[in-house]
Write a protein that binds this DNA or RNA. Sequence first.
DNA 1: ATGGAGAATACTGTATGCAATCATCCCTCG
DNA 2: CGAGGGATGATTGCATACAGTATTCTCCAT
Lengths: 230, 230
Amino acid sequence: MPETPTATVRGPIRRPAPLRQAVYEALTEMIINGSLKPGQHLVEAELAESLGVSRQPIREALQRLQTAGWVDLRPAQGAFVHSPTTEECAQLLSVRALLETHSAHGAAQHATPHDVARLWELQQTGLTALAAGDARAIVEANAALHTHITHLSRNAVLAELIPQVDRRVRWYYMPIAKPRGKDAWSEHARIIEAIADRDADRAEELMRRHTQNTTDFYCKQIAAVAVHSA
Amino acid sequence: MPETPTATVRGPIRRPAPLRQAVYEALTEMIINGSLKPGQHLVEAELAESLGVSRQPIREALQRLQTAGWVDLRPAQGAFVHSPTTEECAQLLSVRALLETHSAHGAAQHATPHDVARLWELQQTGLTALAAGDARAIVEANAALHTHITHLSRNAVLAELIPQVDRRVRWYYMPIAKPRGKDAWSEHARIIEAIADRDADRAEELMRRHTQNTTDFYCKQIAAVAVHSA
DNA sequence: ATGGAGAATACTGTATGCAATCATCCCTCG
DNA sequence: CGAGGGATGATTGCATACAGTATTCTCCAT
């Protein structure tokens, strides 16, 4: 059977690796792309069978998914896909703005020419995806760029915390990736320039405005959708 | 055998409750109070026996301990108590400063008179502990106060993220709690006043300076210890 | 004596089985 | 006809057993 109708079915995970990690990635993927819908009850046995593993790796993956905010784990009831609210999303974006701004400051202080070159590569990847109009690729490139800036800040705590926030932002960001893309990537370019100049304060300020623009754009988009659906 | 000499031995966990939670709390306690030393290899079977449970709850607790930053979990090798570095501590404090500052701003916007009254209660608890010279109680009161400010900000994402950073700061904070206490708690009082006045900008600025003072104090203390031990 | 190969050991990773708990549905009683 | 209580099925929580892998110790060769 090449594909069954139910969207949650998946082929077995590649064996030679920590299964819990593979399961974790598979489940996040399924949540992001909508195979697992918000509020849905995740039954361990079902997931285990569809992924071709036992319940144990599933349980461990679910625990990590909870701390990452993907699922809510209610004792003696099991896991439920997290239902995001617009309020929570605004909070996520505001915290992200804070952390990324701090991160940009540090990146500008520590970046080497080699690091900057890598940033320009990622920027190019993003522009290509933007030209192709591939929302999925745009979001991915965006995440890759921001992640790399985070690492350049040489702050392990930040690098640990930001992904927790950022991946969830990615989820919400998908629908607005294309319309927001053009401005976003030109802002990226200016941020990279500031980092290349080792101008920490300018990089910080540009990142602050960049994340603020994204937040504003998202809120407007939400409002528009709300009106449209009314 | 009522007690074995090894410091890691503990009585069984109270049964009627999620065991993984109880194990998690027991292990954090042991790490904080030094029963489990930094770098130490945590063997699942040993912990399981000493806590009177099977390996399963231990494993789940260790996973959570990893995401909280208490242990490092190396694949196929097991769990090791995290060894903090002064560099990492500085990063933790800087991130904490960022988050707490943002939190203070939100708290001043949303606080009700009842909330403010509660803050003054916590402040009083801290002053009492300070007068008694009980470092443990000081740290606890400090954490309680900051936690409550976080909740007042009405930002669920912040409230979720800050404890992850804050608990680890608490760990490092213990040795400097007493000498830092006097200034810290008078700064707290001014922050509470700003929150009571609903002056978000002032609260934010006061919190920024407060966390900055704490960071500076910590760094000086570390330097002093380094000189002393040299 | 020292370096390396191989085997023994110990530990983690995974699977399976059992008991406790929660949700649901049906039956009975008011 | 509606509400409450109990039985049944499903699902989680925990424990045990097995397999794979990294580490360490020993023994042999150089």
